[in-house]
């Protein structure tokens, strides 16, 4: 099974610069044209499945707006 990851976008900090969209190796990120942040930018979002939680978007983010999660398997 593919590794499952996801991001949480802090819409107060996201300025819609799109650096994470360009850097995403899975090409699953885009700017959400339906929404506006309090500052008036279009925030980034995941538009498709396939995020692996690699964290590259968070490494390039100039505003530390992204929190990256990954599903960790634990044996029960």
């Amino acid at each position: 099974m593919a590794i499952k990851g996801w991001i949480e976008v802090d819409e107060l900090h996201c300025k819609g610069c799109g650096l994470c969209v360009a850097a995403c190796p899975q090409n699953v990120m885009s700017l959400d044209m339906e929404r506006l942040t309090p500052k008036g930018y279009h925030p980034v979002h995941l538009h498709a499945d396939g995020c692996t939680g690699c964290g590259i978007c968070a490494i390039v983010c100039p505003d530390a707006a992204l929190t990256v999660f990954r599903e960790a398997k634990i044996k029960a």
Binding site: G53, T67, V68, F69, E71
Partner: peptide
């Protein structure tokens, strides 16, 4: 069981 882990 899958558990969320914070990467960043």
């Amino acid at each position: 069981i899958a558990e969320p882990k914070i990467v960043y």
